[in-house]
Amino acid sequence: MGVEQKLGNMGVVTTTLENMVNWSRTNAMWPMLFGLACCAIEMMSAQAPHYDMSRFGMELMRASPRQSDLMIVAGRVSKKMGPVLRRLYDQMPEPKWVIAMGDCASCGGVFNNYAIYQGVDEVVPVDVYVAGCPPRPEALIHGVLTVHEKVKAQKLKDLAKS
């Protein structure tokens, strides 16, 4: 895709619709601009020059859930934040994906106590868990690429079912 067009003046490329849809979804996946705690700073670092997430078509962070495809839960989710997080997830249009960034979002991390959800998967469904406290920007980028792989493996008939 794309490459073939540059190689010669073919004008026409044949592929499956499935590949086409999945390819377009991975290459313009807009994350939601939504930081909770420490991991949000590393998420900003991943956007900043040194790591530069725009190499993966993801430089555009949308502040509105209505315009975003990917929710990066960057940080610990408290009991007060849980309902808000759920509301934001419900407001995102389908198809949508969730990355639980960091130990707190994945499993509660060091905060095993009354105030924190022991894993954001008690609130929203999670596609990819990124380990680390906080994860390095490279780890986040790897998590995002893992989501891309997951998207590329999607089948049209599964999408129709859900």
Partner: peptide
Amino acid sequence: LMPEETEGHPLRKDFPLGYE
């Protein structure tokens, strides 16, 4: 700090840590 519907006062010593 806590949601309004919370019962109890977390930093009291008789409030459990809530360990899972």
